[in-house]
Amino acid sequence: MTQILQYLVMPLVHIVVALAAILTFIALNGLILVYVERKVAGFIQRRPGPYEVGPQGLLQPLADALKLMAKQLVMPRGADSILFWAAPLLSFTPVAICLMPIPFGPNLTGWNVNLGILLVLAFSGLNVLALCLAGWSSNNKYSLLGAARAVAQSVAYEIPLLLSVLCIAFTTGSLNFADVTASQSHGLFSWNIFVQPLAFLIFFIAALAETNRAPFDLPEAESELTAGFHTEYSGMGFGLFFLAEYSYMIVVSAVGSVLFLGGWNGPFLSGHWWMLGKIYALILVMMWFRWTYPRVRFDQLLNICWKWLIPLSLMNLLGTALIINLVR
């Protein structure tokens, strides 16, 4: 009886609680990030941003969310209904799993798995399938083009992303986020960003592309493709894609913080506040990028990846492997 309790019920309860906490975190973050993004956009363009709903416009994201929920769900004629409605769900659900293995604090890990990095990379790959399905099932040329771009872009940028993550896995010798965090706990300069600056740069650029953030937001390029893969989605269909985009920003920022910025380790007073601070700092940088850089052309996008990022990350990986072998 106690054994059942120990090996079956307790882990199950643990996972359910962790999932619930993570979903709350995601939903809250969706609201906060929408607000922050619009404020950042406003301030960079020297205007106040949302201001009218609530004090300083704080209730604006709630109003937006209500609007999205109240809207009618419309499906275009000739669309594949199952795939059409499965796509937004498929885009959103893996996010919760991606955040499970990430150590937010010394004792704040949803689910401590040994292959955490692999888990995140595998499940975040599902997103591109969702975008592809959304574009394909919409029966709309813009959606289809957006989906084609999403797939080409994700496939290309997954390689440098993986290679730069691999560098960290080599130096730490583990695919467990907790181990990676622990290996960076010896002061500021043990953080991987100082050990592997190039890998961090490549990781960050590839992460921008993987989350379809500007300047790599080609799958939804408004000026050419209306809204790309989610052209035909209204109401919560669009809302889920939207939430998923912001959630993936959190995922890549969290992964980036753990892999390169020391996770919850701080130069002083280590704790989950450091982790949160790093996540939001990375997200702010992403927003800053979005309102600074114009969108790249599609061939430029692929050129950056195949001609620069992949060779550089390969060289970085080889160099890392060589040094590790020499040191050992």
Partner: peptide, 21 residues
């Protein structure tokens, strides 16, 4: 030039609003 761009928008971010409420 990318860094210069960031510098420009970063500076603008810190300046007061130009629009009138």
């Amino acid at each position: 030039s990318l860094i210069v761009g960031l510098k420009v928008t970063g500076k603008e971010f810190c300046k007061p609003w130009l629009t009138v409420h």
